[in-house]
C-alpha cells in the first residue's frame, strides 16, 4: 500500500462514524472491520461532542476530519483550520460540495481550497471526481493523496465510472488514492482494491445495514481480499473460452 503523507495504514479501510444506531454499534463496527482510519466532523456543540470525542479516542485509529457540508472554498478552509486545532492533525478530508442533489465536488472551489490549505501545512485528502485534469491540478496545488468518488455520497451504487477510475489510477501510478463515497457492497470495495486503489472510505453502507457489525466485518474482509488479489497479479480477461482441464490425454470415446 502506498503511504498517506508518510503513514502506512495497518488496513486499507477508512470508516465513517455517522448514522450508527448507537455508540456501542459504532465501536463494534470498528472492531469488526479492523478499519484503520475514522472520519469525523465538526458541528455546533449541543452537549454530545465531548462524549463522542472520548469514543473516537478509544478506537485507537487515525482520525481524518472532514469539511462535509461546505459549499465554498472559504467555508472549507475555515472549517479545516478549526478541525486541525480540534483534532490535532494536519490531515483533512477536503469536501467542497458543488451540487445539493449529487453532492458532487465543486472542482473550482476544491482546487482553491487545496492550494490554500497545502500552503498552510495541511495534508489534504481532496474528495474529487475521476477527472484526470482536475486530479493533475490538485496534485500541482500540493495534494499528495486523491480521494475519487465511487458514486454520489450515500448512493450505494458502487464504482459508477469504472473505466474513468481505471484511467485515473493508470495516469498517476505513484499517487495514493482512496475510493471515497458511493460504495454499497463489499464487492464494490473489493473491486476498488483489485483496480489498484490503496484504500476505500465508506460510511452509509455499514451504518445503515440491517446488521452494521456484520457488514463492517464483510467490508474488512473484502478490502483484504481485493488487496491480496491485486498483489497476486490477476489474469487478463479473454473473449473466448480456453479449457482449463488438459485436452491432451482425453479418451477417444
Amino acid at each position: 500500500m502506498r503511504r498517506f503523507y508518510g503513514v502506512r495504514l495497518e488496513t486499507p479501510l477508512m470508516l465513517g462514524t455517522a448514522q450508527y444506531p448507537s455508540p456501542a454499534v459504532l465501536e463494534a463496527a470498528f472492531r469488526g472491520s479492523k478499519a484503520s482510519v475514522a472520519t469525523v466532523s465538526l458541528r455546533r456543540e449541543a452537549g454530545k461532542g465531548q462524549a463522542f470525542w472520548q469514543i473516537i479516542r478509544s478506537l485507537g485509529v487515525h482520525v481524518l476530519p472532514n469539511t462535509a457540508g461546505c459549499h465554498s472554498a472559504q467555508e472549507a478552509v475555515t472549517t479545516a483550520r478549526m478541525a486541525r486545532e480540534m483534532f490535532e492533525t494536519n490531515w483533512i478530508k477536503l469536501e467542497v460540495i458543488g451540487h445539493a442533489d449529487t453532492l458532487q465536488p465543486d472542482p473550482f472551489g476544491l482546487l482553491e481550497a487545496t492550494e490554500t490549505l497545502a500552503a498552510d501545512g495541511f495534508e489534504v485528502f481532496p474528495y474529487t471526481t475521476e477527472d484526470q485534469v482536475l486530479a493533475g491540478r490538485l496534485l500541482a496545488a500540493g495534494a499528495q493523496v486523491l480521494m475519487p468518488w465511487g458514486a454520489p455520497i450515500g448512493s450505494g451504487l458502487g464504482l459508477n465510472n469504472r473505466y474513468g477510475l481505471k484511467m485515473l489510477r493508470a495516469a498517476f501510478p505513484d499517487v495514493p488514492m482512496v475510493i471515497d463515497a458511493g460504495l454499497g457492497l463489499p464487492s464494490h470495495a473489493a473491486d476498488a482494491m483489485e483496480l489498484g486503489f490503496d484504500a476505500v472510505l465508506l460510511n452509509t453502507a455499514v451504518a445503515q445495514a440491517g446488521d452494521p457489525v456484520a457488514m463492517a466485518r464483510a467490508f474488512g474482509l473484502a478490502v483484504q481480499a481485493g488487496a491480496l488479489a491485486r498483489g497476486a497479479d490477476p489474469m487478463e480477461p479473454r473473449e473466448m473460452a480456453v479449457p482449463s482441464t488438459p485436452v491432451l490425454g482425453k479418451a477417444w470415446l
Partner: peptide, 26 residues
C-alpha cells in the same frame, strides 16, 4: 479564532460566535 487568541480577541454587540465540537462524520 485559534485557542491562543481567545483571551485577547474582543467580543462586541451583535457578533456571531460559532462553538464547534467533534461530531460524527463520513
Amino acid at each position: 479564532v485559534p485557542k491562543a487568541a481567545r483571551a485577547t480577541m474582543a467580543v462586541t454587540e451583535g457578533d456571531r460566535l460559532e462553538v464547534l465540537a467533534p461530531m460524527q462524520g463520513g
